[in-house]
Write a protein that binds this DNA or RNA. Structure first.
Lengths: 374, 374
DNA sequence: GTAGGAAACCGAAACGTTTTGGTGGTGTTG
DNA sequence: CAACACCACCAAAACGTTTCGGTTTCCTAC
């Protein structure tokens, strides 16, 4: 009973074109793939026929025959995070420039969804896929699901490198270090950190950067200052709440992704604390709204678009059997200083110091103040 | 010289499965499509073989044979706008629930890009497509590019309805009316509006709502208060600047999309005006950051996800030849009152009023105040 | 004991491309 | 004139599925 499409011509094929142009199927095909020998006159006749019949080549048949679809896929964990939209656009731009189509998947941090996307892409025989694994994705080799096709990891990657799988992202350790170094330079000694889910390598790296930089400055790390969230606004909010209502609260907070930074920002506002006077805040990933908030947020920004482009490039290089960039390709981050940080109000610096408390207390305070006015 | 994939089995096909299971190709196919008669024992053997060989059905071949891919596509104009991400997710959720795959395109408001997406989807023989046309898309019938496949318009649609093409969105006239009515009830008389590109029907509808509501309140509309932007932050910013630096500036501004509202918000901040005391602001589309700004922004919110779901539903209904919802399906909007509006400071109400100025001035202010506290 | 029919399976033809290996026809060269 | 190269074109065989019609086997009923 189901009424099918339109009336007449259900599908116009290359055969129809051939007939109309008085040529053979193979000639039409040759003409289409603008190679091989086909005379000017027949080429014209063919183009005419194509326009006439409104012929659309069937990519399914083509892909089937060629065993190649000229398409790649990307699956990101959260399209509502502008960082990933930027990343996708980078990948899109590069693929378009080399005539590949990009298919997009949004796993919403669910391994189930990611798996189903990968599966669907694999059935569709994409030539390769860029993965930003969901947090809940298994950390073991997932060859089972991606099968035989080329993969590159972007942004996040599993702890131990897999043989034939390229990676591109940023140096998260150094990125975090730069943020912490900056805070320390302002005089902060009690710095809280809200990292993402430990299951993502990025979070552990960023935490490591935090630790290392503290250590370098001879600041004892305090476990109560380290909170683990889930890369979303909610957890940023709740963990910031905990940090801020702690009796001996930090003078600065570093959030390792933009959504958690937003949550922390909201928490600060709710508690009616002054930012940056009462509490300094550093976020991760630059995003448009960061400049729209008051105070404008200081962040360490990642080259999202470049990561996407690089990932696509490395993937397509691999697909076409070209030698590509060296695998763990790490791009640089940038600390963008805006208005959400300043020296701590009462240079609590002192209390964290190692030496005799009183001396350091006063000198520490002076130093902090002077560093503020400088 | 190009090194192909892996080593051995380039592709395992249904034939391999058949061989391994000691069955025929047709039986395996029957087993896969869980219909038809196939005995328990052979079904088991087949499943065993599938697992063993890690067989993945080839969607290309399947689609080719079936002339149906069980996939639909959506192309939205701006993935960095959370409204469209929500819309996409709605479509995704519905399609997934009925076992369709959703392909996503992000045209970035460029007709060239949109066209190329549509083309690519069409070649891929998706079963249908949801379009949110780019602003620069031609307003005439675009059958040429979508060819024969079912289409439904979501959110935006061309001025005159096309015969077999369904539409789903919101009633933009009433949505705008509700915003303006609210502002008027607060006592505003000079209300600026920044609408999107006139080429999208949504913008003209929203402008019409604005006009109608003013008229209903006997307020003469002032052409200098009407600005046409481009649905992006930049133009929101610049037009708000113009409105706010105007000698006789409005007491309230209504922006017809979220990005322009952000731009206006930024402009207000830059001019160091107090919102809402100096200037009230109403945005369009709810978005997460709206609650994070100070003041929290009052917006008219659209059911983005539902629009996406509806669009997918209507499309798939049409694909499967089912009777669907009546075509111009308009969902309701909601005015979400937050903190970005209050009665105008000097009830300039009076000047716009028709009757005796002084009376209305004072009464207007009082009324507004009470309506706010209620 | 045989006709009838259901159950379980199978072979082969399509779906719309690309590609391989040809086939004539036309110049050019020794 | 034979040999050869080259040009423009074509027929047919894949690519990996699904489906249509047919075949075997086995049971039941008369």
């Amino acid at each position: 009973m189901r009424s099918k499409r339109k009336s007449g011509s259900s599908q116009v094929t290359i055969r129809d074109v051939a007939k109309a142009a008085g040529a053979s199927v193979s000639t039409v095909s040759a003409a289409l793939n603008q190679s091989d020998y086909v005379s000017e006159s027949t080429r014209n006749k063919i183009e005419e026929a194509i326009k006439q019949l409104n012929y659309r080549p069937n990519a399914l048949a083509r892909g089937l025959r060629l065993r190649k679809t000229h398409s790649i896929a990307i699956v990101v964990p959260d399209l509502s995070n502008s960082f990933y939209v930027e990343l996708v656009r980078g990948a899109e731009d590069y693929s378009a420039s080399v005539k590949y189509t990009l298919l997009i998947g949004d796993s919403r941090e669910s391994w189930e969804d990611e798996r189903s996307y990968l599966d669907s892409f694999e059935r569709r025989r994409v030539d390769g896929v860029i993965r930003v694994p969901a947090l809940s994705a298994p950390r073991k080799r997932t060859a089972a699901v991606t099968g035989d096709i080329p993969v590159v990891y972007a942004d996040r990657f599993p702890p131990l490198p897999e043989p034939r799988i390229a990676r591109v992202g940023v140096d998260n350790v150094r990125a975090a270090e730069s943020a912490i170094r900056y805070l320390i330079s302002l005089g902060h000694r009690r710095i809280g950190v809200i990292v993402g889910d430990a299951s993502s390598g990025t979070s552990t790296d960023r935490l490591r950067g935090y630790m290392q930089e503290l250590q370098r400055a001879n600041i004892r790390s305090d476990r109560t200052l380290i909170h683990e969230g889930h890369n979303d606004v909610e957890s940023g909010h709740s963990h910031a709440m905990q940090l801020l209502t702690h009796p001996n609260r930090p003078t600065a907070i570093f959030c390792t992704n933009n959504l958690m930074a937003m949550g922390a920002f909201a928490a600060i506002q709710e508690l009616e604390l002054l930012c940056p006077e009462d509490i300094s805040l550093v976020g991760f990933d630059d995003f448009y709204w960061a400049t729209m908030l008051r105070p404008k947020m200081t962040v360490v920004s990642q080259p999202a678009r470049e990561i996407g482009m690089m990932a696509a490039r490395m993937l397509i290089d691999e697909i076409e059997g070209r030698q590509s960039i060296a695998s763990p390709m790490l791009l640089g981050t940038k600390l963008i200083v805006r208005d959400s940080c300043c020296p701590p109000r009462f240079a609590e610096v002192s209390t964290a110091r190692v030496g005799s408390p009183k001396n350091n207390s006063s000198s520490g305070r002076k130093r902090a103040v002077s560093s503020q006015t400088s």
